[in-house]
Design a protein around this nucleic acid. Sequence first.
DNA 1: TAAGTCATGTAAAAAGTTACATGATTCT
DNA 2: AGAATCATGTAACTTTTTACATGACTTA
Lengths: 197, 197
Amino acid sequence: MTTLGYAILGLLSREDLSGYDLTQRMKGRVGYFWSARHSQIYPELARLEDGGYVTHSVVEQTERPDKKVYEITDEGLGALKSWVTRSPEPRPIRDELTLKTYSMWLAEPEEAVKLFREEELRHEEQLAHYEEIRAWMESERREELGRTDSPEFATYATLRRGIGYEREYAEWCRWVADSVDGRKAGEKKDRGEKRGG
Amino acid sequence: MTTLGYAILGLLSREDLSGYDLTQRMKGRVGYFWSARHSQIYPELARLEDGGYVTHSVVEQTERPDKKVYEITDEGLGALKSWVTRSPEPRPIRDELTLKTYSMWLAEPEEAVKLFREEELRHEEQLAHYEEIRAWMESERREELGRTDSPEFATYATLRRGIGYEREYAEWCRWVADSVDGRKAGEKKDRGEKRGG
DNA sequence: TAAGTCATGTAAAAAGTTACATGATTCT
DNA sequence: AGAATCATGTAACTTTTTACATGACTTA
């Protein structure tokens, strides 16, 4: 079973969904930690059904095209449960901005500063978005968040991860930009103190 | 040009290396933010040479098999420079542990706690490793770190990213484990307050 | 002599992205 | 009339991983 398969089962364990619905979930919400396009989802659903992890029923609609709604089976739920607490084999991280950073000594300082200020903004915006959802959950889903075995707590936990990730990333971008800009925290504001020359 | 191509150029801009050397770099150091196996590196080197971004010369060795040492060309350096400050198109994040977290409401609490404590440890170990390198750099490369246009500062910046990433990840793992364990900071220590039952 | 490192490649398979393909309905 | 959304698929291509393949030299 592929990780994508488990991602789909994870969504279907919460509610019955069509391939189209799953594609939408993989953009927002879940897409922040696992994503896939519809071209990957439809074949995977077929494989999952082949393996007996899901079943589908055709729901006829008058105002919309008919759709196939998928439901997780007991076998699918069992497979998902046993996967959840297994240690993930560590996958290599691939972060293009950090890779660029490794070669930033070749760049014009002004351009480097611009890049990192832009990226800082991107991550701050994403952070603000997460914080909104968090505020909403903490006020509207207060009860469920008290139980760590609820789907809501699970969602909240992934949200906390996203918040921490984006906050840290934004802070790092600011640190790099400030360093190159000669405005490192606690340092004097003027740039270009030539030394040894 | 692929991102892997730029990763290779980034390494060759610092020193001449063989395919084997590049493979080693992609395990340690650089491998923390971009990695590739030798089976991907050798064909990519051929493509880079085809495009005129690198050249190679055969270095004959007596005690070791002969090797091809690659050198970046002016064209390669130019391509690398113009890539460095271009905004990276945001790639989807895929994090298997966060995906598991999304379905953790299905797991036995004890097993979930075990998983997150293990992962916390993994990230703390990686953090400790980075902190060692950091301490070494700050004492042995103090001078170079004062210039943000030095390769050393660039390496140091990526290291700071790794430190922030691992620290945040470890903290989050601890928060999840503590939450499920009923030891959330500032909460009473006893577990299992059934309500509504 | 067996395991480990140095050294370079190719082949096959898996995972993921982009493009091709179709068609109904709804909103502007 | 045209764009957007709902809905489902396949094909081609790119990227990455795993496995196949070879061989010299070094260390235990």
